[in-house]
Design a protein around this nucleic acid. Sequence first.
DNA 1: TCTGGGGTCCTAGGACCC
DNA 2: TCTGGGGTCCTAGGACCC
Length: 418
Amino acid sequence: MYALVDAVSFYASAEKVFDPSIRNKPVVVLTNNDGCICAVCPIARKLNIPKFGPYFKIKQYLARHQVVIRSSNYELYADLSDRMMNVVARFCDNQHIYSIDESFLQFKHYSKLIDDWHQYGQKIRKAVWRETKLPVGVGIANTPTLAKAANHAAKKLQGFNGVAVIDSEQSRKYILAQMKVSDVWGIGAKLASKLNIIGIHTALDLASQNAKSMRKQFSVVVERTVNELNGIACLTWDEVREPKQEIFSTRSFGQRITNQSTLAAALVSHASIVARKVRQQHSLLKRLVVFASSSPHQDGYYKKSIIVEFPQATQNTLTIASAVDHTVAQIYLPGVLFYRCGVGAIELASSQFQQPDLFAKSTENKALMSCYDIINKRYGQGTLQLASEGKQQRWQMKRQHLSPSYTTKWCDIPKIQC
DNA sequence: TCTGGGGTCCTAGGACCC
DNA sequence: TCTGGGGTCCTAGGACCC
């Protein structure tokens, strides 16, 4: 059996944890630079606020309805996510953290010990609430896609109270029949509208199709989804957890950037983030793309990217940052109002099977990097950084409605008055 | 006044090679 | 009757997810 546990509008719920005064109010959270709306709490959802719509277009409407606005506070969310994941991990053999607020659980030996999955799901849910004050939904089924569907039902359908289990033909059909095909994991807007045209509207409609012919008409992804909806697991647990093939770090600037050294500082910072993530999954970096662009929403759209190839695959921040720094002169163009930039690892190799260069001196410096990672993990990312990332970081993002970092900064620790 | 997220994977098509 | 290959690498753009 698999379970999918995720938080109810996580960012908005996280904002409510340390600020009880907004618990009964409509709350939305904005993306980086206060650009779009990325989380809408259940109370705010009743006002039909569109998720991922640009904030400035709906600002008036939100003000009229006295919606509480928060900028994304990743320091807070990452810490609450850790706490939530730790609680959930106690209930299973294996946990795969799929995103900041979702994890898949696998039950192997536990399966024999659990006779009532509903009750067990409630136990998880209550433990998370008790220890973190985050509301979660739990979906349980025998494939990841069905666990996702059950999770959807747990949160959206009446009568489930946060936990749904698909453990019979009856429960599978009941839940899938009430689920729009566009809500199925892996079916996005484009596929959903094509499926609608041929009369497939619900998840159950999709599940009833012939998997092979879905593959012919659409793709192998749809075939797999059909099988999974029928309880046939298509991805093994190991496959679900495979290391990433690409790792990107990109960001739009708080204000447009016009000078080369600021662009260089931003790109080196992204390089450093990518290098850290590469080390985290025990990979080595072979090829990298460095890019920057002006706003695609404005005339005269400029974008430029450079590919960097490392003769010897590496995970050394210093090597990677310096290579990125050398591309900046080719990317920068005077007069361009830079809006966004980033760095992406596009070819990775396993560090287990490294091909060393017989004639080159190794530049890996593993001891330095692991020391660097340990310090930053313990004292917060950015405690140690490269000088070339810049000190003032004026290009940092705009966060005008930022809440305190209650759990990660000494000065922001909540005060309780008796 | 101006304002529009971030990340990963897949696929189609072009260039090139033998 | 009509018919002209197959593989790899690269890139841009599409699709999807949260």
